[in-house]
Design a binder for these strands. Structure first.
Lengths: 212, 212
DNA sequence: ATGATTGGATAGTGCCACTCTCCAACACGG
DNA sequence: CCGTGTTGGAGAGTGGCACTATCCAATCAT
């Protein structure tokens, strides 16, 4: 199919697709002449994935390029690719730099002990670990409780989710498909999880605080 | 304290604080003369909350203003204020507009049935509901499984989290403090939850796919 | 008295995800 | 074979947003 059809079928404007091609979020089409290129179903799928990452996952363009490059990079083993891809995903950008050293230290200790109690390896350079520390540090500074005992249930829940999701990924056959699935599920289940939490909060709050 | 001290104690640059004052994210200081104003501990607390919302919670400035205004609005009852405040929080912005009607319809049905099965009220205008539908719709379009049976465990987990959090909020005494706590915990536990999920995924993936 | 500081207003900056404009090379109907 | 329209590509331009730099007059410290 031509660019115009790719645009129509995906709902993405032509100039935007051109932009994605330039940014290497989409592989170029099969050149059929000096000024024509042909796109296939694979491009359509990829375009939808890109859109989902950018719009729902709020992934910056530069990051999405890295992630997709890592998925496609056949020179390394699958687990490394998975690690690289997922590590690049946000939150991984500007962490919070305010605040004093003391709370930062305490947040760090809490995060580490939490992971040890859950039986997880502690990898201090992991972006997720850094994000966790930032968030805990902000909570501490605001005076909200976030000790290990509070957080343990969250950790166990996260473990359940992860087990479920990794099992799901394992069901895909082709390695690249698995990697793509890992990225897609990591990013797209975030809004699912967060909106379910919001809905549950609303339900619980109206039960507890609202009479009606 | 003066602006300079507020800046120093919070780690936020003076021009940025001025900007927040202009944007009504911070209430003005107590005027002590035509060109001097006095700030107190409450301003510091509020400033930290604003920073946490903007930087960790990625809340847009305009949204944060709405949320904080709703928290402070004493003309309505607490549950309404809570609802207004939390409803304004992202994800609530640009939902995904691509894609066909069919998947959107199916996503809608899935979301509704899921909530019914969880015993929750279905409020189609709820921003969280709309986000959920968008995310499910994207998953469907990409061909990933997201039927009710897959999602039920997520919903139950979300319910557990919400119960825990709402109970925590109930422990605060003053209504405004409760509302602030609700906003802060809603926003700040998101990165906590998401990074725990990432860490758990990494743990689980290396257990399952990586030998060592 | 006088130089520094303060709070407030206005305009400017940098980043980012697009989006517009142009162009030469085709494709295609007559 | 010729004119008309479309295509893909490249560069510059746009709009939104979260700051940030500059000014200014009033006031404070000495």
């Amino acid at each position: 199919m031509r660019l115009a059809e790719l645009s129509e079928r995906s709902g993405v404007p032509i100039p935007t697709i051109k932009y994605y091609l330039r940014e290497e979020l989409l592989p170029p089409g099969r050149r059929v002449s000096a000024t024509q290129a042909e796109y296939d179903e694979e491009h359509l799928r990829r375009l939808r994935l890109v859109r989902a990452l950018l719009q729902l996952g709020r992934v910056p363009v530069a990051t999405a390029r890295e992630v997709l490059a890592a998925v496609a990079d056949e020179s390394v083993d699958q687990l490394s690719r998975l690690g690289t891809a997922v590590a690049a995903l946000p939150p991984g950008g500007p962490r919070d730099t305010d605040g004093d050293e003391t709370t930062a230290r305490e947040a760090e200790r809490t995060a580490e002990e939490l992971q040890r109690r859950l039986g997880w390896r502690v990898v201090p350079e992991n972006p997720a670990h850094l994000t966790l520390v930032s968030a805990l540090s902000a909570l501490l500074r605001l005076g909200y409780p976030c000790d290990v005992s509070q957080l343990l249930p969250y950790g166990r829940l996260a473990g359940d989710l992860a087990a479920h999701e990794v099992a799901l990924i394992g069901e895909f056959e082709a390695p690249t498909t698995q990697l793509e699935a890992a990225v897609a599920l990591t990013v797209l289940y975030e809004p699912v999880l967060l909106s379910l939490r919001r809905l549950a909060q609303a339900e619980e709050a109206s039960r507890r605080f609202g009479g009606e």
